Every structure is written in structure tokens, then in C-alpha cells.
Simulated assay, not measured.
Amino acid sequence: MDWLAAPFEVTFVQRALWGGILVSLICALAGTWVVLRGMAFLGDAMAHGMLPGVAVASLLGGNLLVGAAVSAAAMALGVAAVARAARLSQDTGIGLLFVGMLSLGVIIVSRSQSFAVDLTGFLFGDVLAVRPADLTHLAIALVLALAVSVVGYRPFFALAFDERKAHTLGLRPRLAHIALLSLLTLAIVASFQVVGTLLVFGLLIAPPAAALPWARRIPLIMAGAACFGVSATFLGLLLSWHAGTAAGATIAGVAVLQFLLSTTAAGLRNRRGRLTVPSPAADQRLEYGHSS
């Protein structure tokens, strides 16, 4: 079993594993609400819409996390403003701002001499370069994400399934939506510098979507998403070590593969259930044949 344990005897791989675990837990909390609320496109747009802030912070020698947070907040506010002012659908506003912010970021980054390196690092990160300070930041972000999820559980739940009912119950859906966007922003901003926007979005969407067919309650979906995310991190690092592939992209690929396997297995389970459980019409036919 040396092939299984050998990679994780190296210090930087151990830190990468812990970093991936923390990111998986944060993304399980935020990603479950994103999947249930149907906000996957917004999550992708916000992840890539951080590029202008990151680029400006990098060129000015500032803090990348601050630049990312400012850009993500501007993206979230811009989506709401465009949709309300122009009477466009939310998807249209997201798409327009997504393209605009990403284009602006590429333009800014292209002015620097390290264009390719900076953009590659933004998209894919470097999970194998996780530092102890990064683990501390991720641990703090996890505590904050857990607090927001616990405090906002009831309004988030109502908002995910029936916004009008949330308003009727006095749960202030607009405020809940802002809090949900804040949770999403926290997950993306806290994680992108370590693992890049590709892996953040992969762990934000794929594990909750993989857990969704197997759980009925939201806490169980979050727990399942955490398990899928952690296993994707472990298997991704293991495959990356032995195959010599990019660690972040391999983890994201494993997460998507888990989703495909999970949905396939759930589909086979449902099909088998439909074949083994007689339909009402079949029950009537059997009953009629017995009485005759």
C-alpha cells in the first residue's frame, strides 16, 4: 500500500490535502444552497468576475484577497442593478457582467509582463503550494461559513423553494438573498488564491449535485457534499502524484466524475424501483383477474 500512502508523506502534499479538505467543507456549505437555489451560473460568473480586482491588486502590489472581495461584491451588486434597471432576466444580467468583468480583467492583466503566468494561477491556482497561513485563513473562513449557514438556515431554506412563502413568513427574502450571496462570495474569495477559480467552482457545484439524489434533508446533502469533496481531493492528489498531472485540475476532474457516477447510479436505482413496484393499473388488472 505504499503507492497509497507515499504521496501524503511529503509535507507540501499534506498541506495540499488539508487545504483541499477545508475548501471542500466551505464549498459544501455554500454549494448546497447554490445548487438548490439554481445559482450555478451566478457562482461561475462571480468566480471568474473576480479577475479585475485580482489584477488591479496584483499590479498595485496590494492584497489579492481584498481585490477579489471588492470585485466579487461589485459583480453581485451589478447583477441586481442591471436586472432591475433594464428589466432583464437575472441570467441575462449575469451573462453580460460575466463577459464584461472577465474581459476587463484580461485587458488589465495583459498590461503586465507576466500575463500568462498570472492568468494561469488565477484559473488553476497551486494547491501544492498551500502555506500554513493559507490553512489558517481557510479555517477562519470555514467557521464564518458555518455560522452564516446556521443563522440563515431557515430563510435560506424558504428562499430556495418558495420565495413568496418566505416573504409571507416575514423571513425577508431580499436580505436572505444578500446573505446567501455573501456566503457564496466568502467561499469563492477564501479559496481561489489557494486552488484557483476552476477548482473552487468544481467543488462548489459537483459534490452537492452528486449528493442531491441520495439525501432528502439539507444537512445530509451538505454532509454528503463534504464527503464527496474530501474524497475528490484525496483521489485527485493521489492520481496527480502518480500520473504527473496538474493537481488542481485533477481534483476538479475527479469531482465531476463523481457527479456523473452518482447520477448514473441514482438513475439505475430509480429505474429498478419503477420495474419492481407494480403500477396502479397493474394492480387493478391483477385484482380484476383474481375476482373473475
Rank of each mutant, 00 (worst) to 15 (best):
C27G: 09
A28K: 04
A28H: 03
G31Y: 03
W33N: 00
V35T: 13
V35Y: 02
G38C: 10
G38W: 09
G38N: 10
G38E: 07
M39P: 02
A40I: 08
A40W: 04
F41Q: 02
F41G: 00
F41C: 06
L42W: 01
D44C: 11
A45S: 09
A45L: 07
A45K: 03
M46D: 03
M46A: 05
A47R: 01
A47K: 02
H48E: 01
H48V: 08
G49F: 00
G49P: 09
M50K: 06
M50W: 01
L51F: 11
P52W: 03
P52D: 01
G53N: 06
G53T: 09
G53E: 04
V54W: 09
A55P: 00
A55I: 05
A55W: 09
V56F: 01
V56G: 01
V56Q: 04
A57Q: 02
A57I: 11
S58M: 13
L59E: 06
L60K: 11
G61P: 02
G61V: 03
G62R: 07
G62W: 07
N63R: 13
N63C: 14
L64H: 13
L64A: 10
L65Y: 12
L65W: 09
G67P: 11
G67F: 04
A68L: 06
A68Y: 07
A69T: 08
A69E: 04
A69S: 10
A72S: 04
A74V: 15
A74C: 13
L77N: 10
L77V: 12
L77H: 05
G78F: 03
V79Q: 02
V79E: 08
A81Y: 12
V82S: 06
V82G: 02
V82F: 01
A83N: 06
A83M: 04
A85D: 08
A85R: 13
A86T: 11
A86F: 13
A86P: 06
S89V: 00
Q90A: 07
D91S: 00
T92I: 06
G93F: 00
I94G: 03
I94A: 06
G95F: 01
G95S: 10
L97N: 00
V99G: 04
V99N: 07
G100K: 11
M101H: 12
M101F: 14
L104F: 08
L104E: 08
L104K: 05
G105D: 04
V106L: 15
I108L: 12
I108G: 04
S110I: 08
S110L: 11
R111T: 14
R111P: 10
S112T: 06
Q113E: 14
Q113D: 14
S114N: 15
F115W: 13
V117T: 15
D118E: 13
L119Q: 14
L119Y: 03
T120W: 11
T120G: 12
T120F: 13
T120N: 15
G121C: 02
G121M: 10
G121I: 02
G125W: 05
G125L: 03
G125D: 05
D126A: 15
V127Y: 04
V127D: 03
L128G: 13
R131T: 14
R131C: 10
R131K: 13
P132L: 00
P132A: 08
A133L: 11
D134A: 02
L135I: 08
T136R: 13
T136N: 11
T136W: 12
T136M: 15
T136D: 15
H137L: 15
H137V: 15
A139Y: 05
I140D: 03
L142D: 00
